[in-house]
Write a protein that binds this DNA or RNA. Structure first.
Lengths: 247, 247
DNA sequence: TTGCTCCTCACGTCACGTGAGGTGGC
DNA sequence: TTGCTCCTCACGTCACGTGAGGTGGC
């Protein structure tokens, strides 16, 4: 495949790929396509898979190219029958190297005592202590520290944690069981910040009109907007999973 | 306020701010805090508001600093009673400059004939032509082009548009009424891509085991994960809006 | 005096993008 | 011959981060 054809393939999954980026990734030693007699790049299916690996690692795991290059180099060494580096990725067969999210982060002692869901909790009016939050969500203090560090959970100004903090902590605990650590959830904080920023700017004229009626209308409009973006997001994810998981 | 205090304030809304970044923004001419006799930076409440404006414009509108600087300079000129630049941002009072998303993008001729929601559409098994999609969603062809350009809507491999494409187009049409253009929805495509990438890697071992039973379990697990990330996102947005819209 | 925050200035870095000046392929 | 894709190489850019070698404040 030519560089242009590779670009077309990748664009469906990675819309901001460019020819310049593909050449850059080669210059950085992440792929080595063969060449035609005239010097044109010729990408194999393996090269394409390698590029997908690189782009995925960048997007979903925030890895810098240096680290990705080392992972690929380790995989190449293993493939050549040389000894695997200590702690390096294991082989998963003939395919691409696997990005394995670490399984850790849930504290089993606490978890056994935790309820599956917090019941009767909706308003945001509850207040939990730090220890209560951790126990209810089924997470350890180290996890709570990580969640706070990434801005996913925060104490209320008056002190204590509210129902939303609990909701976040509980979701994080379940996701952790499937290998998603607090670090992987940074993107959700960023996405929420973006959405909040957009919404509040859109309704700022209304909200700043002063009256409580205007404020209520602003809040209503935000709920409406949030509903549409939720549907948008869900549809995009459905489509992507259908394509990725086959059929 | 000292630079450290400013950092603490901004960190709640913009977690990846650093001291180095604040100094950089000053070097780039975006803020000009006064100084103490000893040379320490002294930020006013106005400086803090200005920084919030800059960080918001970066995050929610993808604006490069050069553009943000020009906007702020135009605002400063207006504030000093000099003539406003043609096409520049209007004043919105004494507060911060407003980032106004342009209202455009919905085609009113088509919209009047469009239903509010597509009914009986869930499976993903429907196929619409390009014209049908536009008419049903209530968008013009220019909008559809934009949605496709940003990867939000795509034709199925066999041709035609499915229920998810319709869902996206309809949500985009409603959001456009509130000023959100296709360009603003890029972040949703990116977020969906990240989520798809994460999910499919997490269930890859299951999905590649071969059997249809394993595939079904993989799909089930993805639905579970999607449910938790949805709750996580909703809770983060709720919290943010409560803080931003007051109370 | 210790520990902390703050300062400047030069340089490094990461991930590309651009643009000049070319050649190859149908 | 035209139009398109592709090539290299040097340099630019954008948004910071780092690190040396300091000073200020309680």
């Amino acid at each position: 495949m030519s560089i242009g054809e590779v670009l077309a393939h990748l664009r469906t999954d990675f819309p901001d790929t460019t020819i310049s980026k593909l050449r850059f990734l080669e210059a950085e030693g992440l792929v080595e396509p063969s060449r035609t007699a005239a010097g044109y790049r010729k990408y194999s299916a393996g090269d394409l898979a390698r590029l997908r690996y690189v782009l995925t690692a960048q997007r979903d795991h925030y890895l810098p190219l240096r680290v990705i290059r080392e992972q690929l180099a380790a995989r190449d060494r293993e493939g050549a029958g040389e000894p695997a580096p200590p702690g390096g990725p294991r082989r998963t067969g003939a395919g691409e190297p696997r990005l394995r999210p670490a399984l850790s982060f849930v504290n089993p002692r606490v978890e056994s005592a935790a309820p599956e869901r917090a019941e009767g909790v909706e308003g945001g009016e509850i207040r939990l202590s730090r220890a209560e939050l951790a126990a209810h969500a089924g997470i350890g203090d180290d996890t709570l520290v990580a969640l706070e560090q990434y801005g996913l959970v925060a104490e209320r100004p008056g002190g204590g944690y509210d129902a939303d903090a609990l909701e976040v902590a509980m979701a994080a605990a379940r996701l952790a069981e499937h290998g998603l650590e607090a670090r992987h959830l940074r993107a959700y904080r960023a996405a929420a910040d973006r959405e909040i920023g957009l919404f509040s700017q859109l309704v700022a004229p209304l909200a700043h009109q002063g009256g409580p009626a205007a404020r209520a209308r602003a809040a209503e409009r935000v709920r409406e907007l949030a509903g549409y973006t939720e549907r948008l997001h869900a549809a995009l994810v459905r489509r992507g999973l259908r394509e990725t998981l086959g059929r």
